[in-house]
Amino acid sequence: MNNFSTLFEPNYTILTFLMIKTFFYIETIGAFALIRTFVATGPSRLIACAAFLVALIGVAAKYIPPLAGLSGEMPGRIASQIVNQGIITAGSGMALPFAVSILFALSWRMRGHRWWALDALHLLCALGFFGLWLYTLS
């Protein structure tokens, strides 16, 4: 009887991962990239701006079609394809977080970066997020 009751209970690790992936990770790293866009100089600023733009495209693709009532239309399908691109399996939605995170990490390696604390926060967020993702795969 105990196995039957756990069959319908949600897995809180997976739910936590999905909530962070859906509502927090891209937005947080995009905010870090926006801050670096204002404080950095040279190539670091350009890469941070690219990370911010990719994050902005992801956020816009996630929120604008439902708010504008375009979910079933062609713009809604294109936005869904942007948000749901996979890394390991099709439709996992991990391509966008990887792209934003890698671009922001590259801005740290470029000349002109400032505020190392942004990189420390990004590292903590990335380790937590991608570690949680790997944990949910097993």
Rank of each mutant, 00 (worst) to 15 (best):
R109W: 10
L46A: 11
L34Q: 01
M94C: 00
N11R: 12
L46D: 09
G86F: 01
W115C: 09
A60Y: 06
V59Q: 07
F52V: 01
H122F: 14
A79L: 06
E9V: 07
I35P: 03
F23Q: 12
S92C: 01
T136W: 04
L34I: 09
R36H: 14
W116V: 08
H113K: 12
I87V: 15
C125V: 10
S71C: 02
L118W: 03
L123H: 05
F24M: 14
M74G: 00
Q85C: 00
C125T: 10
T136D: 11
R36T: 06
A51T: 03
L15Y: 06
E27T: 13
L56P: 02
S71A: 13
A126H: 02
G76A: 13
E9A: 12
P43H: 04
N11E: 13
A68K: 11
Y12P: 01
I47M: 11
P65Y: 08
S5D: 14
L127C: 13
L56H: 02
F17V: 02
A120I: 14
T136L: 07
I35W: 14
N2R: 10
M74D: 06
H113W: 07
G112Q: 02
I47E: 03
W108V: 02
S44N: 06
S138P: 08
S80K: 14
L46M: 09
T6F: 09
P65S: 09
A60E: 01
I57A: 08
T28W: 14
A126Y: 02
A120K: 09
L118G: 05
C125Q: 13
L53N: 04
V39G: 08
K21Q: 15
L18V: 04
T89Q: 12
W115G: 00
I20C: 02
M19H: 14
V83A: 07
V39M: 12
M110E: 09
M19N: 11
S92K: 00
T37H: 07
S71R: 10
I35Y: 15
A61G: 15
I64H: 06
A50Y: 01
G93F: 10
F52I: 01
F129M: 13
S80I: 00
S71D: 12
I14E: 15
I82L: 13
L103N: 01
N11C: 09
L132N: 05
Y63K: 08
P10W: 00
E27V: 12
T41V: 09
Y25Q: 05
A126Q: 05
T6V: 11
Y12Q: 09
A48D: 03
A33Q: 03
F17Q: 01
G76C: 13
V39E: 13
M94P: 01
P75D: 13
I20T: 03
F52L: 10
S44H: 07
G128H: 05
T37G: 06
F104Q: 03
G131C: 11
F130H: 06
L70Q: 14
